[in-house]
Amino acid sequence: MTGIFPLQVSNLTVAYQKKTVLRNVGFNIPEGKLIGIIGPNGAGKSTLIKAILGLVPKVDGEVSIFGGSYRNRRKQVGYVPQRESVDWDFPTNALDVVMMGRYGHLGWFRRPGAEERRLGMECLDKVGMSAFSGRQISQLSGGQQQRVFLARALAQEADLYFMDEPFAGVDAKTEKAIIGLLHQLKSQGKTVLVVHHDLATVEQYFDHILLVNGELIAAGPTNETFTPENLQRTYGGTMALIKGNAASPGYGGDASC
């Protein structure tokens, strides 16, 4: 470890209109890990990512990426938004979308060329989508669209990735492909933060977790942090049963088949 954290957040507070969505969130993310951001609906998981990336204004707090501001480090940051955030009937094809990942490196006015096409195809190949490069994006299935978004983030060639619910509404095959990719990124020393919903797979997928519900409930290595007490505090009493199941060691194994 170099001593510089890929991501440091301190005292982060975000509010929409009058409602405070996140209060006083602070944590450090270690390098080269897969980190799950876990919490109930409306807990502010997506907002946390968006505030770090400067997509929503923060009321207070500091965000440091590899020791610098997001503005200066943004070429080291890759982002996978929620699939529903765009209109897939846009007139463009899969490769074109992936090449958008290079727009930040290209800068103003310059168009993507042969080099960008090559890299774009390579990234599509990594997510198993090279056969669909010329396909109009509305004619892709939900899982394929999600993989195109992942390939676009890969094309950014970043060191720190943020993924907003990449597993939402995808089939088992895509979920496996995404997990394989996450491990590949990790083995290259990249750090990946993933907003995640399915408690059953948390222990299996992530090295570290952030438990969020309006504030940071707990953060740390999954085996120490994914405890019934912490889940109780994150989800409240109504989640007692599911939480008990999810936290039992055997459950994650059963779900992996």
């Binding site: 968006k50 990336l53 400067g54 997509l55 503005r71 943004r74 070429k75 940051v77 982002y79 938004p81 955030s85 765009v86 209109d87 846009f90 463009t92 979308v97 958008m100 727009y103 930040g104 290209l106 103003w108 006015f109 310059r110 168009r111 993507p112 676009r152 950014q156």
Partner: peptide, 18 residues
Amino acid sequence: KEFKLVSFDPGYARGLGY
């Protein structure tokens, strides 16, 4: 290129620094 990006995915455009 810029108009295309911002018409398709404005949030991502901001993330890229545009």
